[in-house]
Amino acid sequence: MKILVFGGTRFFGKKLVTRLLADGHDVTIATRGKTTDDFGDAVKRVKMNRESREALFCLAQEQWDVVYDNICFSPQDALYSIAAFRDKVGKYVYTSSLSVYRMRDRALVEADFDPFHYEIVTGSREDFDYGEGKRLAEAVFFQKANFPVVAVRFPIVLGEDDYTGRLEFHINHVQAGEEIGMPNEEAEMGFISSDEAADFLCWVGTKSDIMGPINAASDSVYRLSELMGLIEEAAGKTAIVEEITEDNDDSPFGVEKTYYLDNAKAREAGFEFQDLHKWLPKLVESVIMKKK
């Protein structure tokens, strides 16, 4: 397959490219060119601004079997893609987010956010918060695209290659004896590893006929208190968790209510997810060992 990947030089995007190459696909990476990669001549590269309409139309001079879009954050970005890739792509895989769901306190299913009837408001990334930008981008793709679209809704993605440092935040604070702000330690959260996210994207784009919104998350969840206990055990120190702290001590996982995805639709379609309780403890131990 001839495949275009927006954002394929770091985190799960880079791992996706590795899997696509291993499967023998013809891969082009489109990024701003600020992050180097080690793919060598195995991939083609295009340096571009994802928010540029002109740059997208240049890419759409070619026909693509699959386009992976990991860096679309606004309805305007989505509209540009729809205009550029009209009749030029076999399947468009849009990386969306748990953040499209406003509901809390239970496992969230795809029907809990309906992009097919969500009112579209146009604007760029700066005009919306992250969740609303993702909602509106989904709405644009599903209501206006003339090509097949699948929107993969990920929870927080974790891995040793996580440039956001969200897991490291908690480990660093525990090791330093610093407060961590969490409004509700009994809230449950789900996650997915960067390896599993890449596996899922590869599968949904090249090996599955799934279309529409789809949740992708590891099996099982953690109560935040359990997660902190896991970090305490691995670090050998006690966490100081408070409901209210300074802003810079607020946990990136600090939700007020349970917030996780139901992955039944993807499982029923044939994807086998890992159990969160098997890979997350190993990740915590690995991150801590690298700090010693």
Rank of each mutant, 00 (worst) to 15 (best):
K144Y: 10
R153Y: 11
D69G: 02
Y130P: 01
S97G: 07
V67A: 11
E178L: 14
F73R: 13
I171F: 04
E132T: 14
E126C: 01
N172R: 15
V66S: 12
F113L: 09
R86G: 01
V109S: 15
T95M: 12
G123Y: 04
D127V: 00
V100K: 05
C72P: 05
E179H: 14
S74H: 09
S81K: 05
D87H: 12
A176I: 07
Y101E: 11
P115N: 09
P75F: 03
D162A: 10
A176W: 00
G90N: 04
A78R: 10
R153W: 12
V67W: 13
R106Y: 11
E110G: 06
D112A: 04
A84H: 10
D129S: 06
A176V: 06
S81E: 13
V140P: 12
S81W: 06
A139I: 06
R102G: 15
A139L: 06
D105R: 14
D105Q: 13
R125C: 01
A84P: 07
A137Y: 02
V149F: 10
D114T: 00
H117M: 02
A111E: 13
R106V: 15
E168Y: 01
I180Q: 13
V174M: 11
G133C: 08
D77W: 03
D161V: 11
H170V: 15
G90E: 05
A83P: 00
I71S: 14
I156Q: 08
I171R: 14
E178T: 07
V150D: 13
Y130R: 14
S74E: 03
I82C: 13
A83F: 08
E126H: 02
F141A: 04
S96E: 03
I180C: 12
V93Y: 05
A84S: 07
E119Q: 14
D105H: 06
H173D: 00
K144V: 02
V174K: 15
F169C: 08
D127Y: 00
A139W: 04
C72W: 07
Y94I: 11
D162K: 03
V149K: 09
S81I: 00
E110W: 07
F154E: 04
C72T: 15
P115M: 04
G133E: 02
A139P: 04
A145N: 08
V93L: 14
V140S: 11
R166V: 00
F73Y: 15
A145S: 15
L167C: 11
V66M: 13
D69E: 15
D87E: 12
D114G: 01
V66H: 14
I180G: 10
H170W: 12
V93N: 07
E168K: 14
V109D: 04
H170R: 07
F147W: 05
V66D: 11
P148T: 03
F154A: 02
D129R: 08
A176R: 09
L136R: 08
A83D: 06
I171C: 11
L136S: 03
F141I: 02
Y163K: 13
D105P: 01
K144A: 10
F154H: 05
K91E: 02
T95L: 11
Y130S: 01
